[in-house]
Amino acid sequence: MQYKLVINGKTLKGETTTKAVDAETAEKAFKQYANDNGVDGVWTYDDATKTFTVTE
């Protein structure tokens, strides 16, 4: 399945996608991506759209 990440950071904004077997695996990949880019915020997930959002 394909999952999307929407980033609403202080210095980084945008979107990225990943393919993963489940939401938990996608979340780990997205959190690593956010961490690598210095984004630390509040996470939400919408199962209907398979979209994670992180807001600083």
Rank of each mutant, 00 (worst) to 15 (best):
M1A: 12
M1G: 12
M1V: 13
M1L: 13
Q2K: 09
Q2N: 12
Q2A: 08
Q2D: 14
Q2P: 07
Y3F: 13
Y3T: 01
K4C: 08
K4A: 06
K4P: 01
K4N: 09
L5P: 01
L5T: 01
L5I: 03
L5W: 01
L5V: 03
V6R: 06
V6K: 07
V6N: 05
V6Q: 06
I7E: 01
I7Y: 07
N8F: 13
N8T: 08
N8A: 09
N8D: 10
G9A: 10
G9E: 03
G9K: 05
G9M: 14
K10A: 12
K10Q: 11
T11A: 10
T11P: 04
T11I: 11
T11H: 13
T11C: 14
L12T: 09
L12A: 08
L12S: 09
L12F: 14
L12H: 12
L12P: 04
K13R: 12
K13V: 09
K13D: 05
G14V: 14
G14Q: 14
G14K: 12
G14C: 14
G14D: 09
E15C: 14
E15W: 13
E15D: 06
E15L: 11
E15N: 08
T16D: 03
T16N: 06
T16A: 12
T17E: 08
T17A: 08
T17I: 10
T17D: 05
T17L: 09
T17F: 15
T17K: 07
T18Q: 06
T18M: 15
T18D: 03
T18K: 05
T18H: 08
K19E: 14
A20Y: 08
A20P: 02
V21L: 13
V21R: 10
V21G: 10
V21S: 10
D22S: 10
D22F: 04
D22W: 03
A23V: 13
E24F: 10
E24D: 09
E24Y: 12
E24C: 12
E24A: 12
E24L: 12
T25V: 09
T25I: 07
T25G: 09
T25C: 09
T25L: 07
T25P: 02
A26N: 00
A26S: 02
A26W: 01
A26C: 02
E27N: 05
E27V: 06
E27M: 11
A29D: 07
A29W: 15
F30T: 00
F30L: 05
F30N: 00
F30H: 02
F30Y: 02
K31P: 00
K31Y: 05
K31R: 13
Q32R: 11
Q32L: 09
Q32H: 07
Y33W: 15
Y33M: 05
Y33G: 01
Y33F: 13
Y33T: 03
A34I: 07
A34S: 04
A34G: 03
A34W: 03
A34L: 10
N35G: 07
N35V: 13
N35Y: 14
N35T: 13
D36I: 10
D36M: 10
D36V: 09
D36A: 14
D36W: 06
D36P: 01
D36H: 08
D36G: 06
N37W: 13
N37S: 09
N37C: 12
N37L: 15
N37F: 14
N37T: 07
N37I: 15
N37M: 15
N37G: 05
G38T: 04
G38C: 08
V39E: 02
V39W: 08
D40L: 12
D40K: 14
D40A: 13
D40I: 13
G41V: 02
G41L: 03
V42C: 09
V42G: 04
V42S: 09
V42T: 11
V42H: 10
V42E: 11
W43C: 01
W43V: 01
W43I: 03
W43A: 00
T44W: 08
T44P: 00
T44K: 07
T44G: 05
Y45T: 00
Y45V: 02
Y45K: 01
D46Q: 04
D46P: 00
D46M: 04
D46W: 03
D46Y: 04
D47N: 08
D47E: 14
D47K: 07
D47T: 08
A48Y: 09
A48H: 10
T49S: 12
T49V: 05
T49K: 06
T49C: 04
K50D: 02
K50N: 09
K50W: 05
K50R: 14
K50V: 04
T51R: 03
T51N: 02
F52D: 00
T53V: 07
T53I: 05
T53L: 05
T53R: 05
V54S: 01
V54G: 00
T55E: 08
T55A: 04
T55P: 01
T55H: 07
E56M: 06
E56H: 06
E56T: 08
E56C: 06
